[in-house]
Nucleic acid binder design. Structure first.
Length: 466
RNA sequence: UCCCCUGUAGCUCAGCUGGCAGAGCAAGUGGCUGUUAACCACUGGGUCCGGUGUUCGAGCCACCGCGGGGGAGCCA
């Protein structure tokens, strides 16, 4: 099947007067005495194509009565000839011969205007905001990055594993969970009856996953190199510009690998994705650089070409203590790194991404490999300028006795982790992996500042419209 | 969940010490011009978030509620 050409494809043609058909949505109309200019966009690229209605043309009668309906947002199909443009601003344009309006967008009710809108306003019309330059560009970058993630791992021998969305174990340990149930809670409450989860769909409590890591580790211990890429859910009451209740996470896991391999993988991964974005989303990134985040391109280019700064947690704290006076929270060994600390490390100390390793075991998860010093674990976070943590990962504790001991210390249930402990009981290997928040990656690459703007339909506390 | 800011025309905002509701953009009309964030002129457009109170009088002050934004924590 030959699909009709998109505006992106048409703009790549040499204009020689060939017949073309434009299908898209009208962005603006400019009327002059001799010509009427329509800017048409179909989302295939940032650029519009200029369609020209000659007021002296013999076809004038066919579109003249449509003029009042050629408003911002209307969908149209225009046929004509692709010709070199006599004016500056575009190399080619369409000399329209026939024009149809497919769907009207009445100016008195269509919310998008021929002017800039605030992100706050556009968030209220998430179903229409993708028709703007900014959100179209975000959608294209998001698409390219999702594809590049698969390319990166596939090229390196990683297998894509579909870990479950629904989980009946509440031991994933990454935060508050959304409960999933088919019980009629309203009826039970009205009848004053207690909830009996034996009667629930799964015969026990079930939740939406907060992380695919524990499940993907099982496949890691058979396929060696694996990754998940799917939605995850956190029921935390987080109201920030970098948290969502529903977000997409990439979690690779490598067998026979240690924290050094993990750092190398994470670094290569980020540099690969940024390089792809710079190469394949050039005009969209240029738009972000001009309109959203000045300096974005320069900083992304630097990320690709320079090695990431690496420091241990202990070194990081030492660095922070030198500037202790400038912080609201005084840094000390054993403290969790605050937002202001992460910003300082990336923006002031490193001037780019920073890999921080070997955190105190008290502030990290039970499954992380314990270091010889007895006080730290082989954890690895990648922090970036502007918003901090983008990757969290570690080498995993692969020794059964040490893992069981840590589970006991933290008062967790060994029974709940039975299958996870089996991975250490049978053919255990050193292994390591990390989680990358997809939307945080997109914030970093687009220069957008609110995570609710880089996912089509954001979910957050009291926010589940559309 | 905590702290701070905020809610006025379709959008972005101004509105002083409480005294007749304003601007820019958008829209409509007309003009001009191969225009391109088009330009010029005119016109229309308001439950000042909701409620209660104070006052001769509330967009403005007080209280309660709701919405939006930013920051913090949790994390990706």
């Amino acid at each position: 099947m030959d699909l009709p050409l998109t505006i992106r494809q048409i703009l790549a043609l040499e204009p020689t007067g060939q017949k073309v058909e434009i299908r898209g949505w009208l962005r603006t109309k400019r009327e002059t005495k001799n010509a009427i200019f329509l800017e048409v966009n179909d989302g295939s690229c940032l650029r519009n194509i200029q369609c020209v209605l000659g007021t002296e043309s013999p076809q004038r009668a066919s579109w003249e009565n449509l003029l009042p309906r050629l408003t911002t947002g209307a969908s149209i199909i225009a046929q004509g000839n692709l010709v070199p443009s006599p004016a500056k601003g575009q190399a080619a344009e369409v000399a329209v011969e026939s024009l149809r309006i497919i769907g009207d967008a009445p100016a008195d009710t269509y919310p998008l205007q021929k002017k800039a809108h605030s992100m706050e306003f556009l968030r209220e019309i998430a179903h229409l905001r993708v028709r703007t330059n900014t959100f179209g560009a975000i959608a294209r970058v998001r698409n390219r990055m999702a594809f590049a993630i698969h390319q990166f791992f596939q090229e390196r021998g990683f297998y894509y594993v579909h870990t479950p969305i629904i989980t009946a174990s509440d031991c994933e340990g990454a935060g508050a969970m959304f409960q999933v149930t088919t019980l009629d809670l309203d009826a039970l409450a009205q009848a004053g009856k207690p909830v009996d989860y034996d009667k629930d769909f799964f015969g026990k409590k079930a939740y939406l996953t907060v992380s695919g890591q524990l499940n993907v580790e099982t496949y890691c211990q058979a396929l060696s190199r694996v990754y998940t890429f799917g939605p995850t859910f956190r029921a935390e009451n987080s109201n920030t510009t970098r948290h969502l209740a529903e977000f997409w996470m990439i979690e690779p896991e490598m067998a026979f690998a240690d924290i050094r391999d993990n750092i190398a993988l994470a670094t290569d991964f980020i540099q690969y994705l940024v390089a792809v974005a710079l190469r394949d989303c050039a005009s969209d990134l240029e738009f972000f650089d001009q309109r959203i985040q000045p300096g974005l391109l320069a900083s992304l280019e630097k990320v690709v070409s320079s090695p990431f700064t690496h420091m241990t947690y202990t070194e990081a704290v030492r660095e922070l203590e030198k500037a202790a006076g400038s912080f609201e929270f005084k840094p000390f060994w054993g403290c969790d790194l605050q937002s202001e600390h992460e910003k300082y490390l990336t923006e002031k100390v490193a001037g780019g991404p920073v890999v921080v390793t070997d955190y105190p075991k008290e502030i990290k998860a039970f499954y992380m490999k314990q270091n010889e010093d007895g006080r730290t674990v082989a954890a690895m976070d990648v922090l970036v300028p502007r918003f901090g943590e983008i990757i969290g990962g570690s080498e995993r504790e692969w020794r059964l006795d040490l893992l069981e001991k840590r589970i006991d210390e933290l008062g967790l249930s060994k029974d709940a982790y039975r299958w996870y402990l089996d991975l250490r009981r049978f053919g255990s290997t050193p292994h390591a992996g990390f989680g990358l928040g997809f939307e945080r990656l997109l914030l970093y690459i687009t220069g957008m500042t609110n995570i609710r703007d880089v996912i089509p339909f954001p979910r957050a506390p009291r926010l589940a419209d559309f």
